[in-house]
Structure formats: structure tokens, C-alpha cells
Design a protein around this nucleic acid. Sequence first.
DNA 1: AAGTGGTCTAGACCACCAT
DNA 2: TGGTGGTCTAGACCACTTA
Lengths: 249, 249
Amino acid sequence: MTDTTSPGVPLTAPLYKELVRQMRDALGSGEWKPGEAIPAERRLADRWGVSIGTVRKAIDELVAANILIRQQGRGTFVATHTRDRMLFYFFHVVPEDGAKVYPVVRLVSFTRGKADRGEADHLAIVSGDTVVRIRNLLELAGDPIIVDDLVLAAARFPGMTERQFRDRPSTIYNLYQDAFGVSVVRTKERLRARTAEPDVAALLGMPRGAPILEIRRIALGLADEPIELRTSRVNTQHHEYYAEIGGAP
Amino acid sequence: MTDTTSPGVPLTAPLYKELVRQMRDALGSGEWKPGEAIPAERRLADRWGVSIGTVRKAIDELVAANILIRQQGRGTFVATHTRDRMLFYFFHVVPEDGAKVYPVVRLVSFTRGKADRGEADHLAIVSGDTVVRIRNLLELAGDPIIVDDLVLAAARFPGMTERQFRDRPSTIYNLYQDAFGVSVVRTKERLRARTAEPDVAALLGMPRGAPILEIRRIALGLADEPIELRTSRVNTQHHEYYAEIGGAP
DNA sequence: AAGTGGTCTAGACCACCAT
DNA sequence: TGGTGGTCTAGACCACTTA
């Protein structure tokens, strides 16, 4: 019915793109697990009957996307959301002096409910489906700075309990990965300035009507599927949101 | 005096990194100008006596940094800040429906003054050096949404005039590039929520004390030298700041 | 010493663009 | 038709890690 010969849509994709697809499958199916090494480049070249250069080009893409990590002499590993490694990749709130400090997360509430229309759209589920709602209070250097509201599709996290969020050794995305095999790979964020709602202001110890920075995030997985909806409210009296556009020199 | 054999500091840099340095020089010196094609890969390989694969790897880096642009069949070109190409790379304010609209820039004021301590530090000049200060009002779809305050080191932009900012066919970074040979390559931004100052609120048609999004940007050039200090105040009633973390799939 | 990723080569062939 | 970038190969050698 449609014209499949239009330019920009080659009928045969490049070989290395096909390898990227195969690797994404291996990652999504759990054949290659977070933290583990994938087979050596020479072995992959043999397995797929291609040149080692082609394998390297495919791996390059997944390394650039922060999904694989190369370590010379050791191997190539599937990325994990450890506190030291990936936290600051997604966490962009810093003190105004720029130093990076680890947030301490305190669970405020954990409930289940039904997705409203907007939530369902963003999570690629149906309006009325069960969602898990979590509110966290994040402290930086001892002070309450951020209120996080998370919304998750319950179906994607079967058997999730409040306890998992209460005593957690690592990051929240590490919990998703370890306990549910769900890997957050990238996020889209929208920021705006608002006046704080009373409950948020109270948690942050701010006066009513104080300006707060609101961040609405969608976290996406390996296949670009939506995983988490997050609204963060930040007290930017002494903290800022940091962003770089364009790679380092 | 110092130990130069410490790990992570190889004595001989990879060949392709050396090529990257040579290319940055050619760009910085004006041998390769914005909009023009650089020599073909085969010619560069001959010129430097290396394999074409090594040249490609070096070009890859500058393409990833948005400094060069490959076009199959045509050549490799030096990036320009045209309205359609680079504007939305650095301009991240969008209507809440997500559509991208071109800002209309109105010059509010153009003055010269002396750099204070903080400005001098960020611009890598000396406190008291002459700076150019520009205030712009940006309209999106006819409404005033953003107030921009720019600070530039006068020495870097000799003979800059108010007129250049008043009737401008393209973007401000395009002006820097065309009229002064200064290319903005990347930016660092810090965002926070504040209450609007009276003059800013007036320009944006907001009530006193309304919350606004403040963006403090440092724009950096080819050699990572600071070029421009910019403070943007955004009315985020119906607009948002958009950011993506992690590449597209 | 063995195994890994990192660099570099010298070519072949293809897809695309201009003329 | 000739020139460009894009893909792919089959190796060699190096740097690094681990045992």
C-alpha cells in the first residue's frame, strides 16, 4: 500500500545495525545480564560470521548509549545502576557550589491506585490499570531538598512491596534492575518554575507560595518503553539543576 | 619534577587523537571555515600519511561534537549556526504541547561596562575589563516569554555594534560566527526557580513575585574557551525547558 | 602467558550526489 | 561519470588485566 522505496529507508539495513538489534535482544531477553561480561569481540565475530570491525562498530553504539561498558584488558560489561556509577548520570541536582553529594532517600508514602488518562498515555497502559504511587523525600547534606512522586505500571513490577523502597542499599533504578529486570536507559525531562503546593512546601520546610523547580520525567527502557513517571519538586534556594549541551572537548 | 609515568597518561597519544587536534587547529585558525567543505577523507589520509580509517575515526569525534557534518556523496562540512540547523540544539524552551516554535528576538538594551569579579572569572578575563551587556526579549508565538541578559568580553568581539543585534537575519550564535569568527560549540547550564525581579516581570507581563525559571548559561568555543555568559528568565506558565538524558534508541 | 579491548592498515565495494 | 562518504573485511600489533 505504501511506498517502501522512498529515500532514507534502505531495504537492507547495514550489517552492524542488525548486530545492534541482536545485542539489544540478548540484553532484553536476559541472556546478557547487568554486571556480567558479554562474549569477547572475536567470539561474537565468529558467532555471527562477520568481521571484528563490524562487531566493534555495533558495540560502539551501545557503549555510546551507556548500555555497555568497555574495559580494556577485562572485557565488555552490561551497565548497572550502582550508586557510584550511574546515579549522577540521571540525577542532576547539585549544590550551588557545584559539588556532587549523594541524596538520602526517605519513603513518605507507598500506595496503589488506578491510572488516570494522562498517566496511562505516558506509561503505555490503559486508563484504570493499576499503578504504584510512591512519594520520596530526598535529603542533600542533611537538608530536605526534593520531593519525588513516582508512578509505575504495577504489571511491570509484579510483587513490588513497600519494604523494597524502605530499606534499599542502592539506587531506585538499581532496584528496578535487580529485582524486576527492568533497565532504565534514558530519560526525557520537562522543567518549569511553580509555586509549591502546601504539602510539598511543608515537607521541604518552605513558606507557602515559595517558588520551586518542578521536573517531570519519563524514564525509558531498552526498547524505549516507558518505565516510570516521576515528578520532582526541588527547593532551589541553595541548589541547582545542572545540564550540559554538547559533549566535552 | 612530577611523575609522568602514572597510569592513564600514555606518553604517546593515539594517532587519531593527534588528527583531531590538527583538525581543531585548522578550524580555529580559519583554514576551514563554517559552511565550507573540508578536504575529502582520502586527501586528508594522504596529507597526513595515515590510513583512511584513522582519518574517519578522527572525523567521527568532531561529528559527534556537532562541529563537523557528514553528507554522503557531497562531503564533510563545518557546522554553521543557521536558524533551522543549530537553533534548537541550544534553545530548549518549548510550549507545553511540545511543538517547536521559533523565537522572535527584540533588543531591549545594549551597553558597555566593566566586568565584575564573577563575570571576569567565568569569561576568563580580568576584573574591570570591558564587557558588552545586551538584554533581549524573546517572543514565542507573539507572547513575551523570555528575558535574556548576555555578557560578552569586548576584546573577543571587536567593533561590535548595537545595530548588529537590532536587525539580525539569523541567530545570535550565527552572528558571533559570521561577524567575529567565534563558534559556540557547547554550553553548560544551571537552572533554578526564583521570584521574578520587577523589571523582568514587567517585560514578561507577569505579576510581581511570580515564579520564573532562571537559566544561567556559559557558552564555550572550539578550544573550550568561554564566549558568552547568559542569564535567561522564562515564564513557564505555558512553556517548559526540555532535556533528554541518554541518546535516542 | 593468555586473553581482552584499542589502534591502525590497505584495500574492496556500495550508496549517494553532482555534472 | 567521477567524486564523495558509508560499510565491511582480514589481518597486525599494542596496551592492559588477570592469573
